[in-house]
Design a protein around this nucleic acid. Structure first.
Length: 482
RNA sequence: GUCCCCAUCGUCUAGUGGUCAGGACUCCGCCCUUUCAAGGCGGCAACACGGGUUCGAAUCCCGUUGGGGAUACCA
């Protein structure tokens, strides 16, 4: 089965604002974005906030900001579903008037009892259409008595079939569906009523959503028809699983876009990673820009099986972006992390030098900022354990003292001059350069490993480098005394 | 319970009847190198199981098992 999608399409992403944007939702949004961008059309953002108790104004802004951050672009909206309630109600009344829906006076208690009964017998519960059998008089009677009622959709007695973009041909027999509720007894539309009405009114042509909606679809298809709408093409994406192969949950760490953002993941990396969790461009490319993905996107390559969210691979991918991005492109993403570390006013040139030297050594923006801290700190804290072998070397303070003086006297503090001076000193003293290089790195960064030393010293600059050397010398001498 | 969906290395995946089952992450070596990364090279590692169909099945069909979803006057 090969599906050919002709643009322009009208797709939508319709999250409910019950929390931060989940990575599963982000991925759904990304596929909608890719489809919209690749064939043309419009991406509509609709907030399904009809469940007022679970909706929150701040979350709506949060979701928009998360979407914008990962680079998903919407053309229309956000529309609030709650503002369209009168419309949903109106359309339900039409169905009622047309005999495509009917009033149901059964109480929730009665229904629960029946459901339990069916369960016991090992059968699927189907509403037995008790109220469909009511006569005009009986209905009038109940209405007059002010009995509360819900409005049920009258399911057609036929197989419901549709072709799912990711799963192929679907066929649901009539006895699998029942007359679901359109309007609650308080007059509010249910989710099913609202989505279908909105999708029709917004002219949605393709519905790409989570697999949890697959079994809702046979309800929606006849409802689209009853309302005189065109049935959109559906595509149901598998869920994202945690390492335990269960639905991704908090217990394995971050699950929301916002959390990855604060961890120091780049939006480009997250977009790229999520897009590849369930879709492949067909070649062996792993790192793709949004534009490349748009060019290569094909719904036929959407995977039908659930994928485990592999944090390790996301981290790897982020590291790729960290080292590949132009400094200018990287810089804005670094900003909040710099601010948090008190480096908002760091000298731009030194900052750029430090970042460029360390970016291939960090996996997240957070780690990267950690690595460049020594360039801007007055004093470092040396770990006696990590410096143990330097503390043992009795001659080292003497060597470093001379090195410090020679470096201080250098007319130009550049890597070649620094390199030459250190090697000359090592030669004079019959030492391998490494004997001086490693303690010096420790002195400047308080770390046992890092970038090539002379690049590091040049980037750090004369002031900070000499200052750190002085402090390290003091630390060594103190250690030797104690 | 019932209905639906899914099933290739530990993980993400390529593969649409004939491949040494390919790539990526992870892990392990080697190279590069003042160290650590990055990079390069190489290695370990998979078709869930059982029946068919076929000259030939990872690929098609049926079961089993496993996982997931849905079973609401939630969305």
């Amino acid at each position: 089965m090969t599906i050919q999608i002709q643009g322009p399409v009208r797709v939508r992403f319709a999250p409910s604002p019950t929390g931060f944007l989940h990575v599963g939702g982000a991925r759904t949004a990304i596929y909608n974005d890719l489809l919209r961008q690749s064939v043309g059309g419009a991406f509509i953002l609709r907030i399904e906030d009809t469940d007022k108790e679970r909706s929150d104004e701040a979350m709506i802004r949060q979701i928009q900001s998360a979407l914008a951050w990962i680079g998903v672009v919407w053309d229309e909206g956000p529309f609030l579903q709650s503002e369209r309630l009168p419309r949903h109600h109106e359309r339900a009344e039409e169905l009622l008037a047309a005999g495509k829906a009917y009033r149901c006076f059964c109480t929730p208690e009665e229904l629960d009892a029946q459901r339990e009964e069916a369960q016991k017998k090992g059968l699927a519960f189907r509403y037995p259409r008790t109220c469909l059998k009511l006569t005009e008089e009986e209905i009038a009677e109940r209405l007059a008595a002010n009995r509360p009622f819900a409005v049920r959709f009258r399911m057609p007695d036929e197989h419901i079939t549709f072709t799912d973009i990711v799963r192929g041909d679907m066929d649901f027999p009539p006895d699998a569906l029942d007359d679901f509720i359109l309007l609650r007894s308080d007059g509010n539309p249910t989710y099913h009523m609202s989505v279908v009405v909105d999708d029709i009114d917004m002219g949605i042509t393709h519905v790409i959503r989570g697999e949890d909606h697959l079994s809702n679809t046979p309800k929606h298809v006849p409802l689209f028809r009853a309302l005189g709408g065109t049935v959109p093409t559906f595509g149901h994406l598998p869920l994202i699983l945690g390492p335990d192969k269960k639905r991704l949950s908090k217990r394995y760490g971050a699950t929301s876009v916002e959390e990855f953002r604060t961890e120091g993941i780049l939006p480009q990396a997250l977009y790229n990673f999520m897009a590849l969790l369930g879709w492949t461009p067909g070649n062996d490319q792993e790192i793709l820009s949004r534009d490349e993905m748009i060019a290569l996107f094909d719904v036929n390559r959407l995977n039908a099986s659930a994928a485990v969210f592999d944090k390790e691979k996301l981290w790897w991918m982020n590291a790729q972006y960290l080292s590949r991005l132009d400094y200018e492109a990287l810089r804005p993403h670094l900003e909040p992390f710099l601010a948090a570390a008190g480096l908002a006013d760091a000298d731009p040139a030194r900052l750029a030098a430090a970042v460029n030297l360390h970016r291939s050594r960090a996996r997240t923006l957070k780690e990267l900022v950690e690595l460049i801290l020594p360039y801007f700190k007055d004093e470092l804290t040396y770990d006696p354990e990590a410096s143990a072998k330097f503390l043992k070397d009795q001659d080292l303070p003497g060597h470093l003292e001379i090195l410090r003086e020679r470096w201080a006297a250098l007319p130009s503090f550049d890597k070649d001059a620094l390199d030459a001076a250190l090697r000359a000193l090592a030669g004079e003293r019959g030492l391998k350069p490494a004997v001086l290089i490693h303690p010096t790195r420790m002195a400047l960064t308080a770390a046992a490993q890092g970038p090539p030393l002379f690049d590091l010293v040049e980037a750090m600059g004369r002031d900070a480098s000499l200052r750190h050397l002085d402090h390290f010398l003091a630390f060594l001498r103190r250690g030797a005394e104690g």
